[in-house]
């Protein structure tokens, strides 16, 4: 009995890790899911937990991305990262063996810039200063909206109060928050994410934040539009069942959950989100897409 438990435990570790060893049950399940890739013309792919865990590459994902690239199959990388400029994200990916064109990297900042330009919005920014160059080409004169992201040590009273006063002075105030997370694990313990600061301003001004970033609909739509595709032609592949999969489905996309990154077994039976596909990792999602059976 002890031996059996042990072997299951090893098996599941392999499934979450290298995933070249798949149980016959999983193969059947993948084959039965293959039809869910019918009509799919593009992919949205999360970075953290799908391409890499921290600075560690996830097995098979480098080859999977190469396969998409050599087939000229449209995809966009989507992340909620707002503390690292795109160049930094790209250099980390490059170090891990990915060859990613900056144009296909979608983070909340470029999505916001697209919205700002499309809707003639001129932002007052509260973001980390190293992110400001990412707003190149945006009109900052006479602000008619406030844009906030995780500003880290720049979340000071003065900076918050400046945003507050701007919103109160606007005739038709628009408030954009890049993500709405509550907190995350930082180097020295739990740290406030942008969500609390957005709620702070919402309470003071009565202006609800428009969220750009997963799980917001606008965010997925911006990435889909960038590929000139329709929502139902696109699958979002991520490790966060609620924000990646649930968010994408609510926006009209298909959602595929990977068993890598922060995935836990209970995500497969989430009370509200039913993924269109559950795959072992990105490599298998791509194999299903191209109709080749898993090895």
């Amino acid at each position: 009995m002890l031996v059996r438990v042990l072997s299951i435990s090893i098996g599941s570790t392999l499934l979450r890790g290298t995933c070249n060893h798949i149980s016959s049950f999983t193969v059947k399940r993948l084959k039965s899911q293959a039809s869910n890739m019918d009509g799919v013309k593009g992919l949205l792919i999360d970075i953290s937990g799908v391409l890499k865990d921290g600075d560690v590459v996830i097995d098979g994902s480098v080859a999977a991305i190469k396969k998409l690239q050599s087939a000229n199959f449209p995809f966009r990388l989507v992340t909620n990262e707002t503390l690292k400029p795109r160049k930094t994200i790209l250099s980390t990916l490059s170090m891990l063996g990915y060859n990613i064109d900056e144009k296909i990297l979608f983070s909340p900042v470029p999505a916001t810039v697209e919205i700002l330009k499309r809707e003639n919005l001129r932002p007052h920014l509260l973001v980390h200063p190293r992110m400001i160059p990412e707003f190149e080409g945006v009109d900052f004169n006479d602000p008619n909206c406030v844009v906030m992201a995780d500003a880290y040590e720049h979340f000071t009273f003065e900076n918050m109060n400046a945003c507050f006063r701007k919103l109160m002075a606007m005739e038709n105030p628009v408030f954009i928050s890049l993500g709405i997370g509550k907190y995350y694990m930082d180097d020295d313990g739990m740290a406030l994410d942008v969500g609390g600061f957005a709620k702070c301003l919402e309470y003071a001004t009565g202006v609800s934040p428009r969220v750009v970033g997963k799980p917001s609909r606008d965010y997925f739509l911006a990435a889909v539009n960038d590929m000139n595709l329709k929502c139902d032609q696109v699958v979002m592949i991520g490790d966060d069942v609620l924000h990646d999969v649930g968010g994408a489905q609510a926006a009209g996309l298909k959602g595929a959950l990977v068993r890598t990154g922060k995935f836990t077994k209970r995500d497969e039976n989430h009370p509200t989100v039913k993924p269109d596909l559950i795959v072992n990792n990105l490599a298998h999602a791509v194999e299903l897409l191209f109709g080749t059976s898993p090895s």
Partner: peptide
């Protein structure tokens, strides 16, 4: 929510209470 100072309206404690309520 806010109060008046000589330099204009300023954030009161309420917004920061809401910040902590939401996050925690």
């Amino acid at each position: 929510r806010y109060y008046k100072t000589s330099s204009g309206l300023s954030l009161g404690p309420g917004p920061f209470v809401k910040l902590l309520e939401y996050a925690a």
